[in-house]
Amino acid sequence: MERLTKSTVTGICTQMTSQLWKEAEISELTDPKLGVITGFQDLLEELDALGKIDLGTLPPAGAVQKDTV
C-alpha cells in the first residue's frame, strides 16, 4: 500500500465526508503532532496487516453470552 498523502486526505475530507475538517486536522492525519493516538499512517499500516489475516466467515461480534464451561 502506498503512503497516505495530504492531498488524498484533503480530497476525502472535502469531497466525501460527513463533517467539515480544519486544515490543521487534515495535516494531523499525515503529519501527527499531538501524539495523543497512533498516527493515522501507522494505523493504516496496522490495518493493512490485519486485512491479510483470514477470518473465514466469522461474523462481527454481537452481545456477549454466558460462557459454557
Binding site: 494531523e28 501527527p32 493516538i37 466469522l58
Partner: peptide, 23 residues
C-alpha cells in the same frame, strides 16, 4: 477533534473487520 478526523477516514470494511476480530 483530531481523533474524530481519524474516525472519518476509517473505511467501513476496516470497521467491520475490527468487529470480527473482537468476535
Amino acid at each position: 477533534r483530531a481523533g474524530l478526523a481519524v474516525g472519518q477516514c476509517i473505511l467501513a470494511e476496516q470497521y467491520i473487520r475490527a468487529k470480527r476480530f473482537i468476535a
